[in-house]
C-alpha cells in the first residue's frame, strides 16, 4: 500500500534527477564547445559545408512555411478586422506577427526538425559505429571537429534563414492583400510601417540566433550520448526534435518576458 502511494513521488524524484543530470551534461557539452573554439584549425574548414547544410538546404522549407503563413495571416486579419477597424491594420498584423512571432518560431520549429534531427542522427550514428572514438584516436578533438562547426553554422544561419522567411512572409501577405482583399499597396505599407520599430528586427534575430544555438547544441547532445545501435540513433533523433521544439517555445516565452 505504501509502495503504491509512494510510487508517484519516487517517479517524480527520479524524473527530476534525470532532467537535472541531462541539463548538467548538456551544459558540460556546451562549455566544452566553447573551450573547443580554440581549435580553429580543426573546425574552420568544416564551417562552410555545415553552413550550406544548415542554412542553404533549409531555405526552401523555411520559405515555403513563411509563404503560406503570410497568406493565411493576411486573410485572417481581414476576416477579423471588420467594420470599425480600418483595413490597413492587416498590414500591421502581418508585419508584426511575422517579425515578432511566426517568422522566428515557425522557422525555428521547422529547422529543429530538419537540422536538429539531422545532427542527432549523424552524430548518433558516428557514436555507435565508433567514428567518434576514431576521431579521438586520430587526435581530433571530437567536440571541435563535430560540435563546434554545427553550432556555429546554426548560430549564423538560423537568423539568416529567418530573415528571408520574414521577408517572404510579409511579401506573401502583401500580395494576398492586394490580390484577394482589394487593398492598395499604399494601405498595406502604411499599416506595415505604422508601428514598425527597428527593435522588431533585432528581436526576431535575437530569437532566431538563440533558437539556432539551442537546436544545434541539443542535437549534438543527444547525438553524442547515443547508446546501442540503430534503435538508439532513432531514439536520440526523436528526443532531439521533441526537446528542441519544446525549448524553442519556452525560449520564445522567455524572450517575450525579458525583451518586450
Amino acid at each position: 500500500m505504501t509502495r503504491i502511494l509512494s510510487q508517484p513521488f519516487i517517479s517524480m524524484g527520479r524524473g527530476a534527477t534525470l532532467l537535472a543530470a541531462g541539463i548538467g551534461r548538456w551544459g558540460m557539452l556546451t562549455a566544452e564547445t566553447v573551450r573547443a573554439l580554440r581549435h580553429v584549425d580543426v573546425w574552420l574548414r568544416l564551417l562552410v559545408p555545415q553552413m550550406a547544410r544548415v542554412g542553404v538546404d533549409s531555405v526552401p522549407i523555411a520559405l515555403f512555411i513563411a509563404l503560406f503563413t503570410g497568406i493565411v495571416l493576411s486573410l485572417q486579419a481581414s476576416y477579423t478586422f471588420t467594420g470599425a477597424i480600418p483595413l490597413y491594420f492587416v498590414g500591421v498584423l502581418v508585419g508584426k506577427t511575422m517579425m515578432l512571432e511566426l517568422g522566428p518560431v515557425l522557422t525555428g520549429l521547422a529547422l529543429s526538425g530538419r537540422v536538429g534531427a539531422n545532427i542527432a542522427a549523424e552524430l548518433g550514428t558516428m557514436r555507435v559505429t565508433e567514428q567518434i572514438d576514431a576521431l579521438e584516436t586520430l587526435a581530433y578533438p571530437p567536440v571541435a571537429y563535430l560540435v563546434v562547426p554545427r553550432v556555429l553554422a546554426s548560430i549564423i544561419m538560423f537568423p539568416i534563414v529567418t530573415a528571408l522567411a520574414i521577408a517572404v512572409g510579409i511579401a506573401a501577405g502583401w500580395i494576398t492583400a492586394i490580390q484577394l482583399l482589394d487593398m492598395s499597396t499604399a494601405e498595406f505599407v502604411n499599416g506595415l510601417t505604422l508601428f514598425f520599430l527597428p527593435f522588431d528586427v533585432t528581436y526576431a534575430l535575437i530569437k532566431a540566433t538563440s533558437f539556432g544555438f539551442m537546436v544545434a547544441t541539443i542535437g549534438c547532445f543527444f547525438g553524442f550520448h547515443t547508446r546501442g545501435g540503430a534503435e538508439g540513433v532513432g531514439h536520440s533523433t526523436t528526443r532531439a526534435v521533441v526537446v528542441s521544439s519544446m525549448v524553442i517555445l519556452v525560449l520564445d516565452a522567455f524572450w517575450a518576458v525579458t525583451l518586450l
Binding site: E130, D133, T137
Partner: peptide, 15 residues
C-alpha cells in the same frame, strides 16, 4: 595517440 594506431571492430571509417 600518435604512437598508437587503433583498428576498430567495424573499422569506424568516416562515411
Amino acid at each position: 595517440r600518435r604512437k598508437v594506431g587503433y583498428v576498430f571492430q567495424f573499422a569506424a571509417l568516416f562515411d
